[in-house]
Nucleic acid binder design. Sequence first.
DNA 1: TAGATTGTTAATCGATTAACAATC
DNA 2: TAGATTGTTAATCGATTAACAATC
Lengths: 221, 221
Amino acid sequence: MDANFTPLRGIPEPSLRRLPSYCQLLKRIACEESELISCTRIGQELNLDPTQVRKDIAFTGIVGKPKIGYNIRELHDAIETFLGWKNVRDTFLVGAGNLGSALLGYRPFEQYGVRIVAAFDVDPCKIGTTVHGKEVFGIEKLPDLASRLHIRLGILTTPAEVAQQVTEVMVASGIRGIWNFAPVGLNVPADVIVQSENLFSSLSVLSSRLTASLRTTPIQE
Amino acid sequence: MDANFTPLRGIPEPSLRRLPSYCQLLKRIACEESELISCTRIGQELNLDPTQVRKDIAFTGIVGKPKIGYNIRELHDAIETFLGWKNVRDTFLVGAGNLGSALLGYRPFEQYGVRIVAAFDVDPCKIGTTVHGKEVFGIEKLPDLASRLHIRLGILTTPAEVAQQVTEVMVASGIRGIWNFAPVGLNVPADVIVQSENLFSSLSVLSSRLTASLRTTPIQE
DNA sequence: TAGATTGTTAATCGATTAACAATC
DNA sequence: TAGATTGTTAATCGATTAACAATC
């Protein structure tokens, strides 16, 4: 152990990405007879190595009891706290098209720490309307509203062509995290976090595997 | 090299997931002066190691010229062919709610090898209507239509509670690949491929990083 | 007690990155 | 020619998996 390096490396991304699925499982089985759960069981349910589950869980700071396991409610609580789902963050959405409208109406977000408080667009037909209870403003209103409401998180659902331009407005308005659904890379300053949702990456994985699978095990009807 | 193992391991998933972004970049710069591009340039644009880009590209089978690079159009073509985007696959979507409707109207899919030909739901208010030009059928029509149209790929956008049940109908109807947008794991036979879109995994990564970033570099307005 | 489970350390595995000869 | 780039082999890095002592 070299004392020069801060051990504050934090949780690895793969572990972070698995945590939400543990929450979903715990919620599903909360009504069962037992109040306890083991990594073995979680691993079986989610098709993961139990040691991996144990390590992931350790990052949340919770400790279990040997031979016993973890208290389901405590574990659920610890993961939610770790993921920051207890504090809801007010969020803007830019681009009230098909996908944007869908996300505006996506209920589960509120349980996962994200409350979309307003939407923005350039289309005069959309400005002034209400989508799933959220008002749509002209994009020129974004800087002022973002600053007054102290918005730090933005969801980007515009077409690819204008994504960079819109990003610059968001960043200039104090937004520090962008959930990007446009299929392009975004250039941002070092202190702005971008998480791009690559629908086509996932689709590529699925298509390739499906093609391979259909080749080895053809149609059986 | 041990001859016992088939070298047909295929492309690693991380490489596969990067390929679509190369296509997007190539499309964007197709209009530029040069007809050539190097891995160095691609790496700069997408913030990737040039060697990594070179290895990814090699999986598509295309070969470049030392000192010259790759022909942009040829490279673009090779990646699209490799990803199977040239052959469009007829696809069913189940769950015509917010998210489902958005995907039904999402134009880019057709360029990426997926054509949604019909939607299914259980809500009598939706059945018989048309969403973005696609007819919505009752779920009970799925088996017969899937078999007649030889559907192999399905998109699942139902609420989590009914996802498993709907999956079983899809699998029984001959569907072999499922793009799952419901926030639950699905149990399927070994010859069925599931690709789950974990919106909340991505959101967790973004939230965590944003929280950390706001802690180190607070508001500067 | 015996067996299952936790927490932790060591071994393995695979992806990323570095090094370098070949080449246009 | 010199320098940039490809293709490939070796080194590094980090995540996953295995091993095992501690414990309820």
